[in-house]
Amino acid sequence: MAKMNMLQAINNALDLAMEKDDGVVCFGEDVGHFGGVFRATSKLQEKYGKARCFNTPLTEQGIAGFANGMAAQGMKPVAEIQFADYIFPAFDQIVNESAKFRYRSGDEFNVGGLVFRTPYGGGIAGGHYHSQSPEAYFAHTPGLKVVVPRDPYQAKGLLLASINSPDPVIFFEPKRLYRASVGEVPEEYYELPIGKAEVVQEGTDLTLLAWGAQMEIVQKAADMAEKDGISCEIIDLRSILPWDVETVAQSVLKTGRLVINHEAPLTGGFAGEVAATIQQRCFLHLESPIERVCGLDVPYPLALEKEYIADHLKTYEAIVRSINF
C-alpha cells in the first residue's frame, strides 16, 4: 500500500497498464512531455517513449477519431480530453462511432480497449466551461460504458478495468478531488468491477445514492442526519452505464426511501433514470417519493457557484423531507 492522491493513482494505473501491455497508448492535448495540464500522464513519455505517450494537435474530434481507429486496429488507446466541457467536438466520434462500432459491423470490428479519460465537475471556480458533468448525455448512448470513481483506490481499480474492458469506456475523473482526495492504494495491478455499485455505508432508514465527487457531500449529509437519529445507507453508483439496478433496488426495498444526488442539472440528469427504474422495482415498498438533489436547470454559474451546488445542506433537507413525508 502507498498513500496517493487521485492523480497519482491514475498515473500509477496508466503506468501499470502501459507496462503490462504494449498496446496501451496515452495521448491528448499537452499529455506528452508536460504530462497533461493536471499531470495525470506525468513521466509516461519519459518511460515509454514518444510513440506511446504524446501530445496531439488541439482537436478533440481528431483525438476521438484517432482513438477509434487505433482501437479498431486492436490497440488500447487511453485518450485524454482536457476538460469534460471540451468533449463536445468529439461527440460525433464517440456517440456515433465508438458506441456503434461493434453493433453496426456485426462485430466484424470493435473498439474494445478504448478509454476516454476526462476531468469533470465543479467546485473549482471554473464557471460553465470548466465545471460541467456531462455523464447523462453519454448514458443515453447504448454501446458506451460510463464510469466515475470517488477516490484514489477506486480510480486506479476502475481505470485498469476500463482499459481492460471489451467495450469503449468514458472515464469521468472528479477534478475537484484530484489532489484533495488522498488514500491508501495498493501498488500492484488490480481491477474493480464495472457495472457494480458499492454500498459504502450500511443503514436502515433511507438510501442515499451518488457518484464521484458528490460522495463526500452525501456522506456529510448522512453524518448530519445521523445526529437526528436517521440511519442512511450510502451507495456509490460508480458506473452510470451500465448501472447496477440490483444493488440500488435491494437497498431501497430495505430502507423504503431514496435520495439521489448529482452535480449535473436536474432535468434529464441520470437521477431521473434511476428514480423511474426504482419506483417501478420498489413501488410497494416506497415510504416517500424519491428525492433528487441536483444542480439547477441552468448553466454552471461562477459567482453563484456555492448557491448552485447540490451540497450537503440541500441533501440533508431532502433526507429530512423524505423521512417526514
Partner: peptide
C-alpha cells in the same frame, strides 16, 4: 456578463466585441 464567466472572458455589444467563449 453578470459574473458568469471566468476572468478575461469579456464582451460588449456597444463596442462590437463578442463575448469570449472558452471552447476553442
Amino acid at each position: 456578463g453578470k459574473g458568469r464567466q471566468m476572468p478575461v472572458h469579456y464582451g460588449s455589444k456597444a463596442l462590437h466585441y463578442m463575448t469570449v467563449s472558452s471552447p476553442l
